[in-house]
């Protein structure tokens, strides 16, 4: 079926897989050796130069920048996965059933997705956050929700196309159940790459939203917990004093991670469409 090795031969995909793997290993490392942002404060080593002990130096209260970067993945890793699960389940089930059966369900689902897409994503997240206290999982759930219509639309179009193809007609005549035809023969065999592309983009989008909110302050990750966004916001104060690494490190982390996820998504999509 899906031959993963032919995918990994693409440089974009290999880069993306490496990024995902690195994120996962960092999460495991961080779970085994937890980082305590308060205990790490050491006023004796403010803005320490780069050394083996502090490969990326230290920040304005002497906390190790590398450790904070590694721990910063906590803010989006599991919330990101949760958002992907939400968008995947909602989008596949909603879009799939709409395309397969049509009728009242499809009409209602189209209305609900139209409601969601009418809100600019960032503004919907701000609206809910201003009313409900929730933290990162709420933000991630909202991000998954606002991304759901896009997944659903892709699935819907695909199912609509495949529904009337000969091999699906044949499968139906063979007496296969609707669920098996829809989820196995249409979605699993023929629609996986574009769905995966959307989910990888969504994971990148969760990082984007998390770092943006943390950078703006208020709703994102709060000090002393590190996030790549709030590290960059702190670095803003010290960049004119020549503390470049302090700013470059989180900026690079954000860029490489999002770029990795997006290019893996693109590579999977191209690989599936070949």
């Amino acid at each position: 079926m899906w031959n993963v090795l032919t995918l990994l031969r693409r440089p974009k995909a290999a880069f993306g897989v490496a990024v995902l793997l690195a994120l996962t290993l960092i999460r495991i490392y961080d779970a085994v050796w937890p980082y305590d942002p308060v205990a790490d404060v050491d006023m004796a080593r403010i803005f320490a130069p780069l050394s083996l002990e502090h490969p990326l130096g230290t920040d304005q209260v002497g906390r190790d920048t590398l450790l904070r970067i590694l721990h910063g993945t906590e803010a989006f890793y599991f919330p990101g996965l949760a958002a992907c699960a939400l968008a995947a389940i909602g989008g596949i089930v909603g879009g799939g059933l709409s395309g397969f059966y049509g009728g009242v369900f499809a009409g209602t689902f189209r209305y609900v997705t139209a409601l969601i897409t009418a809100f600019p994503r960032f503004i919907l997240i701000l609206l809910v956050c201003s009313i409900v206290e929730g933290g990162m999982y709420l933000i991630a759930a909202l991000t998954g929700l606002v991304y759901l219509p896009q997944v659903a639309e892709t699935v819907y179009r695909k199912v609509l196309y495949f529904r009337s193809t000969e091999f699906i007609e044949a499968a139906k005549v063979h007496g296969l159940s609707d669920g098996r035809v829809l989820f196995y023969h249409i979605l699993w065999y023929n629609c996986l790459p574009p769905i995966l592309k959307h989910l990888l983009y969504l994971f990148g989008y969760v990082i984007l939203i998390e770092t943006s909110l943390s950078y703006l302050g208020g709703f994102g990750v709060q000090e002393p917990d590190p996030s790549w966004g709030n590290m960059l916001a702190q670095a803003r104060e010290y960049i004119l004093q020549g503390q470049y690494v302090f700013a470059i490190a989180p900026a690079t982390a954000i860029l490489i991670t999002i770029l990795g996820l997006v290019s893996l998504g693109d590579a999977i999509n191209e690989w599936g469409a070949r």
Partner: peptide, 27 residues
């Protein structure tokens, strides 16, 4: 953004509604 931070609900509602109405109108 400031209104959301300060929980200034009428302001947040008004802006969200206007913006969403604009997007729906564009659609």
């Amino acid at each position: 953004w400031s209104a959301a931070n300060l929980r200034d609900v009428p302001l947040v509602i008004a802006i969200t509604f206007l913006v969403a109405a604009l997007v729906a109108f564009l659609h």
